[in-house]
Design a protein around this nucleic acid. Structure first.
Length: 275
DNA sequence: CGGACAACCTGGCGGC
DNA sequence: TGCCGCCAGGTTGTCC
């Protein structure tokens, strides 16, 4: 599923087709896609509102409407795109939520696994209030990372996946950042040296920025709003490369399980800490 | 705090 | 081809 770089790419791709468009009506065929309010109120409230701005917080897509924020989380398999009403050639049986726009187009939310959620709210803090710092923002500094690691004994990989610790990282970019930093995924978070923290800070941002620059990773389901694939997956150092040679040292990449998630790393470039 | 695990769902893939 | 088990980018809730 989409992580921060994929969500950022979707947000950028939706601005042009959506900003200035007014919603005429709402359609859905899977009730649990609509998190809140209930579908009847959702439809009544969003009709007539115009898209004013589209932004991102962690993996949440935030569409500023006139008096509410339309929030969308893609979870594992969500896709968002704008298409003409009569795009019958576009047979997508996984569309479960759709907004009719005022220009003969529709915003469609396709989601094969049905984990994705849409919200309509005037109080965004109820959704995003518990999130940790945004890793690419100016507020996130090496000192912030160091302070947040204090006293945390969990494996560093597990911590990077906690959205309350740092927002927007997911399984792919956590593995990529740890490899770039030369840190073993099981190293206890509070055992990182200052040097390792500085490296990890830099590589978290570098891995995420590379993902954005390559317009996201098209592994299985992710596509940009224009339907084309991102290129980020062609540049992974470790994710999905189990058994293949490390591009840095040539040793085969290994796969283990950390916090119940598949975890890829190079045992040579990312040695276990001796502490 | 944290670790394990089940839920939520469906599709793709490898193995037999 | 068909069936089966396993795996999957996320998040939340429960239990110990």
């Amino acid at each position: 599923m989409p992580e921060l770089p994929e969500v950022e790419t979707v947000v950028r791709g939706l601005r042009t087709p959506l900003i200035g468009r007014t919603v005429q009506s709402m359609w859905y065929d899977w009730g649990r896609t609509i998190h809140s309010p209930d579908p009847q109120e959702f439809a009544a409230r969003i009709a007539g509102q115009t898209f004013r701005a589209i932004n991102r917080r962690a993996k949440y897509i935030l569409c500023e409407m006139d008096s509410d924020i339309l929030v969308i989380h893609l979870k594992m398999t969500g896709r968002l795109y704008v298409t003409p009403d009569d795009a019958v050639h576009d047979v997508d049986k996984w569309v479960h939520f759709c907004l009719q726009l005022d220009n003969g187009h529709q915003l469609r939310f396709s989601d094969s696994r049905k984990f994705g959620k849409v919200y309509l709210t005037d109080d965004i803090s109820r959704i995003t209030g518990g999130l940790g710092p945004e890793p690419l923002s100016d507020d996130f500094t090496p000192a912030v990372l160091r302070a947040r690691l204090q006293g945390r004994q969990r494996a560093i990989k597990a911590l990077l996946l906690e959205q309350g610790f740092i927002a927007g990282m997911g399984n792919i970019y956590a593995d990529e950042a740890l490899h770039r930093a030369g840190i073993h995924p099981l190293q206890p978070a509070n055992s990182l040296s200052d040097t390792q923290i500085d490296q990890l800070y830099a590589t978290i941002r570098a891995a995420l920025q590379a993902g954005i620059d390559y317009e996201g990773a098209s592994i299985s389901w992710y596509r940009k709003p224009d339907g084309t694939a991102g290129e980020s997956q062609k540049h992974f150092f470790v994710y999905g490369r189990e058994g293949q040679s490390c591009s840095t040292c040539g040793h085969p990449i290994e796969k283990i399980r950390v916090a119940q998630r598949g975890t890829h790393y190079c045992p040579v470039c990312q040695p276990r800490s001796l502490e």
